[in-house]
Design a protein around this nucleic acid. Structure first.
Length: 586
DNA sequence: GCCGTTTTCGGCCCGACTGTTTTCAGTCG
C-alpha cells in the first residue's frame, strides 16, 4: 500500500531529475508543489483512488496545486505501483546524483556539470575527485568553491537530521538573549520554522533592528559556537554552529526598525505562505517584499525612495492586504488565508496536567514533588499516571502496587490544598488491543490514559484494530501518544487515523498530544484532521522529571499548527467541568 | 508543471550573498 509520503517522494524525485536535466523552471516548481501538497494532505490518497476509481482524477484536481496531468499520474501510480514518467526519468538520471544535489551549495548546474563532464554520479566519487585538477577545470569551480564543498559534505555528515524542536528552541533562546545584550539592539528575535513551531528545525533564523549593525554582526559571526562563517554581508550573515549536541546553520538578518514587521514576515515564512501573500499583493497592483508593502509593481521600490503602505508591524501588513493577522504557526500555505481564524490555544490556557509519572514507576519525583510542580504551574488538577505492569523496563506497577499507589495519591490529595490530585495510570495497550489491567482495577482509577508502548512495528490493519479497541473501551479517558513514534528515530504505528478519530468522537475518548518534543504525538497534521472530525484533545507533558513539565510549550506549538482552540482541549476546562467529564466514564 | 473577476494562453515572488567574473551566474531561503 502506497502512503501519501511515498507518492510525494516520487514527485519530488521527478522534480529533482528535471532540475538535473535542466527542464523548464516552472515545470519543476509545479512538480515540487504537487509533492508538498501531497505530503500535507490528511486523507489517504491510495484509499481515495481505491474507493472512487471513476472520480479520483476529478477529486484530485480539486486540490490546489494538483492539475489534470499530476492527478492522472497519481492514479496511474496507485493503480500500477509505478509511473511511466518517473521510471523514464530514473533511467536517465543516476540515483546518486540526488545525494549530490542535496549538498548545501551544490545546485543543479554544478551537479549536472560534474555528471556530464566528469562522470561523477555519487557523493563518494565526488569526494574522491575533490582534489583532482579535472574538477578545478570546470567552469566556476575555483579553490574556494571546492573548499566550501568539502566543508558542506563534512557538515552534512555530522548534521544528519533536522534538529528536534526541543533541542533547537533552547539554543535559539540562549543565542537570542546573548545577541540582545549587544549595545544598540532595539529588537531581536528568532523567526523561521522555529517561530512557526515545526517539530524539527532546519536552521535558526534571527532578525535584528539595531543602532550598530556591525556590532551585532560581529557578535554573531564570532560566537564561540560558530564553526564556519558562510556569509557576512551588509544585511545578512550566515554561520554553521555546533552547540548543545546539535549541528546547525544559523542566519542573521539586520534591517531598519521601521521595516521590522515586513522583514519578520519574510523571515518567518513559510516560503510558500510568503509566495501566496506576494501573489495577493500583485493582484492588488502592489508589491510585497521584506521592506514592506508598496503601491505599484515596480522592482525594488525600497531603492526608489517609495514609502511603503505598511512595513513596521505584521498586523498592519496583513490588514493592508485585507487579511486577518495569521498566527506564525499557521503560515504553511495550507488554506490559512481563507476564512476567519479562530483564537488559538495558548500556554496560559492550560489548567491541568493529566499524564505524569512518579518514582513509583520510572519518574524522578515523589507524588508531593509532582504536586508542588503542578501548583507552581498554576494548575487546578494533576493526574498521577504511572506505568502498568507490562512496561517492565519502566518499572510498571502490578495490581498490588497500584492499589497501594492509589491510596498514597488519595492521602496526598487530602493533605495538599489548592490542587485536585487524581489517581490514574498510563495503561499499556497490549498488541491485541487488550488493556494491561482488568476492568475492576481500571474502574478504581479517576483517569485512564491508554498508550501503546511495544509492538510498534505492527502492520497498519493490526495497529488500527488494536487502537480502536482501546478507544472504544468504556473506562479509557485518553489515548496516549497514539502512534508511539519517536522523532528522527522511530516511525511508530501507521493506523488508519480517520477510523481512530471517528471512534474517538463516538466513544467520547480524548486523544493526546504528547508534548514531549521527542514524541509530539499526535503530530500536527494528524491533529488537524482530528479537529475536523470533532475530537476532544488532551495536551499533556508525560512528565518524568521536574523540568519536563515545561515541555508543554512544544505541545502548544504543535496544537496551534493544527488550529486547536482552548475549548476543544480538556486541559483548559474549569475543574468542575473536567472532573464531571472524567466521572462520566465511571 | 499549475492557474484563471484580464480564464485555455501567457504568465508564474523577491531579494541577498559568494565566487568567479570583468558584469553576473548560481545558490539559497
Amino acid at each position: 500500500m502506497m502512503t501519501n509520503n511515498d507518492i510525494a517522494e516520487i514527485f519530488k524525485q521527478i522534480a529533482s531529475a528535471l532540475e538535473l536535466l535542466e527542464a523548464n523552471r516552472f515545470r519543476i516548481n509545479g512538480y515540487q508543489r504537487v509533492s508538498r501538497v501531497l505530503k500535507d494532505l490528511t486523507e489517504d490518497i491510495a484509499g481515495l483512488v481505491a474507493e472512487h476509481p471513476g472520480s479520483a482524477v476529478k477529486q484530485l484536481t480539486a486540490i490546489d496545486g494538483i492539475g489534470k496531468g499530476s492527478a492522472e499520474k497519481i492514479v496511474e501510480l496507485v493503480a500500477n505501483g509505478k509511473m511511466a514518467e518517473h521510471q523514464e526519468l530514473m533511467a536517465q538520471v543516476p540515483a546518486g546524483l540526488f545525494d549530490i544535489l542535496a549538498i548545501p551549495g551544490i545546485g543543479p548546474k554544478a551537479a549536472t556539470l560534474m555528471w556530464k563532464d566528469l562522470g561523477i554520479i555519487s557523493v563518494a566519487e565526488l569526494k574522491e575527485k575533490l582534489d583532482s585538477p579535472e574538477l578545478a577545470r570546470l567552469p566556476r569551480m575555483g579553490a574556494k568553491t571546492i573548499e566550501n564543498i568539502k566543508k558542506a559534505i563534512a557538515f552534512q555528515e555530522k548534521a544528519a537530521d533536522r534538529v528536534p524542536l526541543g533541542i533547537a528552541r533552547p539554543i535559539a533562546l540562549r543565542l537570542q538573549e546573548e545577541l540582545r545584550q549587544v549595545p544598540g539592539v532595539k529588537r531581536l528575535e528568532y523567526a523561521g520554522s522555529l517561530r512557526r513551531g515545526r517539530e524539527t528545525i532546519g536552521d535558526l533564523d534571527f532578525l535584528a533592528a539595531c543602532d550598530d549593525p556591525e556590532a551585532v554582526r560581529e557578535r554573531f559571526t564570532s560566537h564561540p559556537d560558530v564553526t564556519q562563517v558562510l556569509a557576512r554581508g551588509d544585511t545578512k550573515s550566515s554561520v554553521r554552529l555546533e552547540t548543545g549536541g546539535a549541528v546547525l546553520q544559523a542566519d542573521l538578518r539586520i534591517v531598519p526598525e521601521e521595516v521590522y514587521g515586513a522583514a519578520l514576515m519574510y523571515f518567518t515564512g513559510s516560503k510558500e505562505h510568503n509566495v501566496r501573500l506576494r501573489e495577493i499583493a500583485i493582484k492588488q497592483n502592489r508589491r510585497l517584499n521584506e521592506y514592506g508593502l508598496f503601491d505599484g509593481t515596480d522592482e525594488r521600490p525600497q531603492d526608489r525612495g517609495d514609502r511603503p503602505i505598511a512595513a513596521a508591524d505584521e498586523a498592519a501588513i496583513y490588514a493592508a492586504l485585507g487579511l486577518p493577522l495569521i498566527a506564525p504557526e499557521l503560515r504553511e500555505d495550507r488554506g490559512e488565508l481563507e476564512g476567519e481564524p479562530a483564537r488559538l490555544i495558548e500556554l496560559a490556557d492550560i489548567r491541568a496536567e493529566l499524564h505524569a509519572h512518579t518514582i513509583a514507576s520510572d519518574g524522578k519525583m515523589t507524588i508531593d514533588e509532582l504536586a508542588a510542580c503542578a501548583l507552581r504551574h498554576g494548575y487546578h488538577t494533576l493526574a498521577v499516571t504511572d506505568h502498568s505492569k507490562s512496561s517492565v523496563i519502566a518499572n510498571g506497577l502490578d495490581e498490588e502496587r497500584l492499589l497501594a499507589h492509589i491510596e498514597a495519591v488519595r492521602e496526598a490529595n487530602a493533605r495538599i490544598d489548592d490542587l485536585e490530585i487524581l489517581a490514574g495510570a498510563e495503561v499499556d495497550i497490549l498488541p491485541d488491543g487488550r488493556l494491561d489491567y482488568d476492568d475492576e482495577i481500571l474502574a478504581r482509577l479517576d483517569v485512564v490514559v491508554a498508550s501503546p508502548h511495544a509492538s510498534l512495528g505492527q502492520d497498519p490493519k493490526t495497529a488500527t484494530e488494536r487502537l480502536l479497541r482501546a478507544i472504544r473501551h468504556p473506562l479509557v479517558h485518553i489515548l496516549g501518544h497514539p502512534t508511539g513514534r519517536i522523532i528522527n528515530r522511530r516511525e511508530g504505528l501507521s493506523p488508519d487515523m480517520n477510523a481512530l478519530f471517528a471512534a474517538a468522537v463516538e466513544h467520547d475518548t480524548a486523544l493526546e498530544v504528547n508534548a514531549n518534543w521527542r514524541r509530539l504525538d499526535l503530530r500536527d497534521s494528524h491533529l488537524r484532521h482530528a479537529l475536523e472530525a470533532g475530537c476532544r484533545i488532551a495536551i499533556d507533558t508525560d512528565t518524568h522529571r521536574e523540568e519536563q513539565m515545561d515541555f508543554l510549550i512544544y505541545g502548544i506549538l504543535t496544537a496551534r499548527r493544527a488550529g486547536l482552540t482552548a475549548a476543544s482541549c480538556i486541559n483548559t476546562w474549569p475543574a468542575e467541568e473536567l472532573h464531571a467529564w472524567l466521572k462520566s466514564k465511571r
